[in-house]
Design a protein around this nucleic acid. Structure first.
Length: 422
RNA sequence: GGAGAGAUGGCUGAGUUGGUCGAAGGCGCUCGACUGGAAAUCGAGUAGGCGGGCCUAAAACUCGCCUCGAGGGUUCGAAUCCCUCUCUCUCCGCCA
């Protein structure tokens, strides 16, 4: 969410940012409401001031046994008018707040300008895609032949976009998860969190999933709880409505969670394989930092995610998303795309974003730079470190052998206890 | 699921016959004094939000309004009275 004061004083810049995002939000309407809101609020506050001073006077007169009937009548009249005006104030305030929740973040100046993903910019390419002297296969073929992925039974017990991992497939998934968590916690300084997978509406609103994107979420109707689409949601909201001491920053958290996405707008896309599932595992990195350092922290956090790919020996590239492809809450995003030989393409395996104070405003997460100073909004960042299912896909496709077996990357062997799946 | 208790500032804890209470006291924290330095001691300060003024702007300052879990009501006036909701704690039941 953008600050109302900011929108008020920088309306042209906000409009310009919205157009770079291909967003057709009507800002003038909000500005008009704001105008009316402040004028009505002023009227109301004047009358409340009158009411307060008269009430005090009445108290004093009563103590002296004087007759305050006239004053009481005056306050009664004022209160009636206040009630009317406050109704307007409340209506306007509500309209403004609802509108504010629908305005996306402003892209950072360094974000490439463009209408869609075709305008994304490849920032760097790392690692060599492996060469094969045979035709590399898709992960779903490899996985089914090895009897470690069972798509048919996933559909039977749950539905489309649900898959069963079996035997060494399940073990490898678990090994990948543990390898990532250990790297982040032991070497990169993140504190591990294991959060609830179901969260309430306020939490979903805090990170920007609600109110605009409810159709992308799974919801438990009975309790009005939502299955988290990413650990970003519960972990960022950990400090909702809090003022953190300045010396606590930066706060680095990593969390493994299952993630649940309705994939409402993705019908027909990636229908085969593990790439696009309703449920998948992910290890997430979440960071809270002071505004001054958030962009250097974005580079560091992205590098922490890249380290997973480097250690797994997977080729990848880093892509800066364009203004038209940027997520609703993000000011800047790098996607990490891993090379998939079976698909013959780079596919997204991580997304690292700086949200600046967009989420912090929604969730009211602040910090006090020093004792006695006014609280400021923190900046929040997060990135996948990494999507576990897609990492499994990348390993199957990149480490496949001509005989159909798959070599396990060195760093994972201590975690799974085998060096090959055949 | 049943019964009961409670929600006050960073923490603790008064305030519940409605009226200078945004709120005593203590702790913590900040600044200052004392000290070679520190501890102890003493003094001062220390909630958040919104709107206005000031200003190129922010901060600071200043005026006002709101907030004592959330929302609504009674009243000239509510932390204090009434209603609804949420959450926490204790006991019982159930359960991994």
């Amino acid at each position: 969410m953008l600050g109302l004061k900011f929108i008020r004083t920088h309306s042209e810049a906000v409009k310009e940012a919205l157009s770079r995002r291909n967003n057709s939000f009507n800002l003038d309407e909000v500005l008009a409401w704001d105008e009316a809101y402040r004028s009505r609020l002023g009227e109301s506050e004047k009358l409340k001031n009158l009411r307060n001073s008269l009430s005090e006077e009445i108290g004093r007169m009563n103590a002296r046994k004087q007759d305050a009937a006239a004053q009481m009548q005056e306050v009664r009249d004022a209160s009636a008018r206040i009630r009317e005006i406050d109704q307007d104030v409340q209506d306007l305030e509500q309209k403004i707040n609802q509108a504010l929740l629908m305005i996306p973040n402003i892209p950072h100046a360094s974000v490439p300008v463009g209408p869609d993903e075709d305008a994304n910019v490849v920032v760097r390419v790392e690692g060599e895609p492996p060469g094969f002297d045979f035709q590399p296969r898709n992960h779903w073929e490899i996985g089914e032949d090895l009897d470690i992925l069972d798509f048919a039974r996933g559909v039977k017990i749950a539905g489309a976009r649900f898959t069963v991992l079996k035997g060494k497939g399940a073990q490898l998934e678990r090994a990948i998860t543990n390898f990532m968590l250990d790297l982040h916690t032991r070497e990169q300084g993140y504190t591990e969190i294991f959060p609830p997978f179901l969260v309430n509406r306020a939490t979903m609103t805090g990170t920007g999933q609600l109110p605009k994107f409810e159709e992308d979420l799974f919801r438990c109707d009975r309790e009005d709880l939502f299955l988290i689409p990413t650990a970003e949601v519960p972990v960022t909201n950990l400090y909702r409505e809090e003022i953190l001491p300045g010396e606590a920053l930066p706060i680095l958290h990593t969390a493994y969670t299952a993630c649940f996405r309705a994939e409402a707008g993705a019908a027909g896309r990636d229908t085969r394989g593990l790439i696009r599932q309703h449920q998948f595992n992910k290890v997430e990195l979440v960071e809270f930092t002071a505004p001054e350092t958030s962009y250097t922290e974005l580079e560091r956090l992205t590098d922490d995610a890249e380290e997973v790919l480097r250690r797994l020996g997977l080729a990848y590239r880093v892509v800066a998303l364009s203004t038209g492809d940027l997520g609703f809450s993000a000011a800047k995003t790098y996607d990490l795309e891993v090379w998939l030989p079976g698909a013959g393409a780079y596919r997204e395996i991580s997304s690292c974003s700086n949200f600046e104070d967009f989420q912090a405003r929604r969730a009211n997460i602040r910090y006090r730079p020093e004792a006695g100073a006014r609280p400021r909004f923190v900046h929040t960042l997060n990135g996948s470190g990494l999507a576990v299912g897609r990492t499994l896909v990348a390993i199957l496709e990149n480490y496949q052998q001509e005989d159909g077996s798959v070599i396990v990357p060195e760093v994972l062997r201590p975690y799974c206890g085998f060096d090959r799946i055949e």
